[in-house]
């Protein structure tokens, strides 16, 4: 065991770095959100709550938040379904396949999102592989619009988040004794009943944990909506970018960033609570 002073001495540098690079900068950024826009470029005015009033009072901004939450929820639902199936498949497959399957399912996380987004453009774009193939087969007369819309965002987001879902569910499944399912079957249960009454309840903690983390990641994604979404602000993150870079409206941009951060952190705290409670039950 380490002594108290030694423990503190080892933690001090990290805490200093986190406070200097994360806590104080984020606090400083958020402090802009309660200031008015100054008269000159990049100047700030007096204290005001008007930025939050504008954000929560204007249906345009509320709708953008609503869209972001809705697309993230849709992404999460698809990822939960697909990810649970894949995790279950990995759990049942033999040891030999674990390594290759792990690298396969984690590849979206290992390969830069710029590369995979570009891949979706080549595959789903107007003159992309899918449209070319469908036209060659005579199935469509005009190219389908598969990206630069909400479909593109959800496809890209599911791809980005699926590794996290699989990892969470797999971790839960691995705590289950494989004999449980066999026991149920020996006692005469149908395979689907085993799935419904034995496997799924036991996998639920993993699905719940995966769902929260995946929702949080979807909400904060920037590259996917920027590359695969429709033009103009189509997600909260792309709006923040637009407010800071194009409109130079730092105070309002900071207010939007603060609300995004608060939402993300609320979900993470929920996630921690969920993990703790499910861990206690298990």
């Amino acid at each position: 065991m380490l002594s108290r002073p030694a423990t503190f001495a080892m933690l001090a540098p990290v805490l200093l770095v986190l406070i200097l690079l994360l806590v104080l900068p984020v606090g400083y950024l958020i402090s802009f959100s309660v200031l008015a826009r100054g008269t000159g470029p990049q100047t700030l005015g007096a204290f005001t709550m008007a930025n939050y009033g504008r954000l929560f009072g204007d249906t345009y901004y509320l709708a953008l938040f609503g869209r972001t939450l809705w697309l993230s929820a849709l992404t999460t639902a698809i990822a939960a379904l697909a990810g649970t199936c894949f995790a279950w498949f990995m759990w049942q497959s033999g040891r030999r396949w674990r390594g290759p399957l792990t690298i396969l399912i984690l590849s979206p996380l290992l390969i830069s999102i710029v590369v995979t987004s570009y891949g979706w453009v080549v595959l789903l774009g107007r003159n992309g592989a899918i449209n070319t193939a469908l036209e060659a087969l005579g199935l469509i007369s005009a190219p389908l619009r598969l990206i630069h819309n909400d479909f593109g965002i959800v496809v890209g987001l599911v791809h980005v988040v699926i590794p996290f879902m699989v990892l969470c569910v797999l971790a839960a499944l691995e705590r289950i004794e494989a004999v449980l399912g066999e026991a149920a079957m020996t006692l005469g249960a149908q395979p689907w009943r085993v799935l419904w009454h034995v496997i799924l309840p036991l996998a639920m903690p993993g699905v719940a944990a995966g769902t929260t983390i995946v929702f949080c990641l979807s909400l904060s994604a920037y590259v996917t909506p920027a590359v695969l979404g429709g033009s103009g602000p189509n997600f909260v993150t792309t709006m923040i970018y637009d407010l800071f870079i194009t409109q130079y409206d730092w105070p309002f941009g900071a207010a939007v960033a603060a609300v995004l951060l608060a939402t993300a952190l609320a979900i993470v705290i929920l996630y921690q609570r969920l993990l703790a409670r499910l861990g206690a039950e298990a």
Binding site: L22, Y28, W250, G253
Partner: peptide, 20 residues
């Protein structure tokens, strides 16, 4: 807290470091 940078949206981290 040590894992916090994973949960704070990256775009917020980037902006915060820029302004700070």
């Amino acid at each position: 807290f040590l894992l916090a940078p994973l949960f704070v949206p990256a775009i917020v981290i980037s902006l915060a470091i820029l302004v700070a």
